[in-house]
Write a protein that binds this DNA or RNA. Structure first.
Lengths: 181, 181
DNA sequence: AAAAACATGTAAGCTGTTACATGATTGG
DNA sequence: CCAATCATGTAACAGCTTACATGTTTTT
């Protein structure tokens, strides 16, 4: 928010540019061939996102003119971009993030290596675990309060949601254990 | 596709109108207070979706003029709407659905009671289970092929995805068992 | 040298979010 | 009777998907 980046895709791109400078086309290829695809990178999303980041001076592009007729613009993060990225990585984990933006949380975690700070990663996982478990509690309540009139499939669908959050909690616990040593 | 409904929200609304006739405002309240919220119902989405369904003659609205100054339009499905709804419920479960549209699959399942056909529901779960397990296999491969250079957090994030799909598969197996008796 | 494939990017249109507008009802 | 809250809906704008456009390299 302070950074002005409003979409998950924006952070995904910023993170990928921290691995190495890339062009819009490079990013497209990456999104097509890796699990990052879930954060979605159609051309009509990537190029505007790059422009917006550039306008905010979080990344800067250099045109590679070695092939003058088919130019290619390679982007890399600026100082400000790196600062925004790191402060995103360090941001707290709230209840709302867990309920409405889990995917973004996973993305954040995936980039945590750029922090080089195991304590920050542990804190992230602890917060994530706490909020997730608390949300599981709430979902269980909702299930209980669902009238007996609700058809079984409806209740089962909610159970599916509960199982997913339980799986996330288990994953967080296991990952924490790995970093605990 | 044959039905012309292009969004998950469209099906969610159609399904809710099969429970009982409702106005746009009723739907908003429902989305705000139930787990359906995840299929997202802001006013600016619901009202256009209702108009579109009405234009396609899948639902029809009747204006309640008992309070002439603050009218209220109540929608119910048409014959064609019910047909489209049921054919959506019966549609097959493909690999792509599991990878890109799991949420919509869950919604479909939640409405399966309207089919009143346990065999169809079992088929749905069997297909879902098969495709999910196959996708877990693919994700495992991707994890194996991830270079050792990939930072641990990146690999863990993928593991999280794998655990989620494994949880879905377990859920499907358990639900199948319930219907098997 | 024509066709296919790769590399790079733009544009139109649909969906959804946020913020607002306006009429009715109820509590102090 | 004024303020708050409920009920109902519209309008502006941002983001994404799909389809296309255009230049370059490789294959046949």
């Amino acid at each position: 928010m302070a950074s002005g980046i409003s979409t998950t895709l924006g952070y995904a791109i910023l993170g990928l540019l921290h691995q190495q400078p890339r062009s819009g086309y490079d990013l497209r290829k990456l999104f097509e061939t890796t699990p990052m695809a879930h954060y979605s990178g159609s051309p009509g999303a990537i190029y505007p996102a790059l422009r917006k980041l550039a306008k905010q001076s979080l990344i800067e592009g250099k045109v590679d003119s070695s092939k003058p007729l088919r130019p290619r613009e390679v982007f890399r993060p600026t100082r400000a971009g790196t600062a925004a990225f790191r402060s995103w990585l360090r941001a707290g984990v709230q209840r709302d993030d867990v309920v409405w933006r889990v995917e973004e949380l996973t993305l954040r975690f995936a980039f945590h290596s750029h922090l080089d700070d195991v304590d920050a990663t542990k804190t992230f996982l602890e917060d994530f675990l706490r909020e997730t478990e608390s949300y599981v509690g709430e979902l269980r309540l909702q299930l209980k309060q669902m009238s007996e009139l609700t058809p079984i499939q409806g209740r089962m669908a909610l159970e599916c949601g509960i199982e997913l959050y339980k799986a996330r909690a288990r994953w967080a616990r296991k990952s924490l254990a790995h970093f605990a040593e």
